[in-house]
């Protein structure tokens, strides 16, 4: 009998012998026929990583990426049939490889790729009522709680993450210079986009996400970055569809 454990064990390990009890035509040994499954499994998982981590693959080059991917695939096979989630440990895995230790920013680049995919599949948001917000009396604005759309993700990086993304993915973009950058991934409609956040905006969004009022989140942002510009941050958030609706004293939620 060939158990599924035995069949599986040799799939991701080419050094292991073909399991017993498998045959080709006319009772010949299975040999290369078993390798079809080996190839299918390994190649399909590598292809999934290629799709999921375009920025990392651009930085490393296709050849290096494709030679590292099998190591990850063997160490971290998927744990769910939803391949849209495959590769969650890839950023950490990259950071553990000694041969990549000089590319300190690679882990954050992998996190950016992962965040783009999560954003792509995130739940749709009910449209934000900008007109209502703009008609609020000034004294009420800071009491509002702004809800952040599920497709929004903020990455705080010690590297020039946004500039690295642009340099690799946008033709003609300038070479990155060393600085810390906060990047927001958002999805105005269906296509996630990285946006460079101004100083303090990541803290501001984080506090809003925790359910704080606009006023409290503003205070927190100013503490972290005295130059925090609320109007500019609101403008970015509105243009990127960051908010999904508002709960405030005079607003009735519709969803």
């Amino acid at each position: 009998m060939t158990s599924q454990s035995a069949f599986r064990d040799a799939l991701l390990d080419p050094s292991k012998a073909v399991p017993d009890g498998l045959e080709g035509a006319a009772h010949s040994p299975a040999g290369k026929r078993y390798s079809v499954y080996r190839n299918n499994v390994t190649h399909s998982l590598i292809a999934a990583l290629q799709t999921a981590f375009p920025l990392v693959r651009k930085i490393l080059g296709a050849h290096s990426f494709d030679s590292l991917a099998p190591i990850y695939v063997r160490a971290h096979p998927p744990t769910s049939p939803l391949m849209m989630h495959y590769g969650a440990e890839f950023p950490t895995f990259l950071a553990t490889l000694p041969q990549l230790s000089k590319l300190g920013y690679l882990r954050d680049c992998a996190r950016l790729d992962a965040a783009m995919r999560v954003s792509y599949h995130a739940a749709d948001a009910s449209p934000f009522d900008l007109e209502w917000f703009q008609q609020l009396p000034p004294d009420q604005i800071m009491a509002q709680k702004l809800h952040i759309a599920p497709s929004v993700c903020v990455l705080r990086s010690g590297w020039p993450l946004f500039d690295i993304w642009r340099f690799n993915m946008v033709e003609g973009a300038a070479k990155p210079e060393m600085q810390a950058q906060d990047v927001m991934i958002s999805r105005p409609e269906f296509d996630p986009e990285p946006v460079l956040l101004p100083q303090g905006a990541a803290v501001w969004l984080d506090h809003l996400a925790q359910g704080e009022t606009l006023g409290d989140a503003y205070e927190a942002a100013v503490v972290s970055a005295p130059e925090f510009d609320l109007a500019a941050s609101l403008a970015i958030a509105f243009s990127q569809g960051v908010f999904r609706n508002i709960t405030g004293s005079e607003h009735v939620e519709t969803s």
Binding site: M1, Q4, R8, Y37, A48, P77, P78, T79, P81
Partner: peptide, 16 residues
């Protein structure tokens, strides 16, 4: 089959 234990192998594997 494609799932074994906690693993999903992303291929359609054969059975006796």
């Amino acid at each position: 089959w494609s799932t074994h234990g906690a693993e999903f192998l992303n291929d359609l594997l054969p059975l006796p």
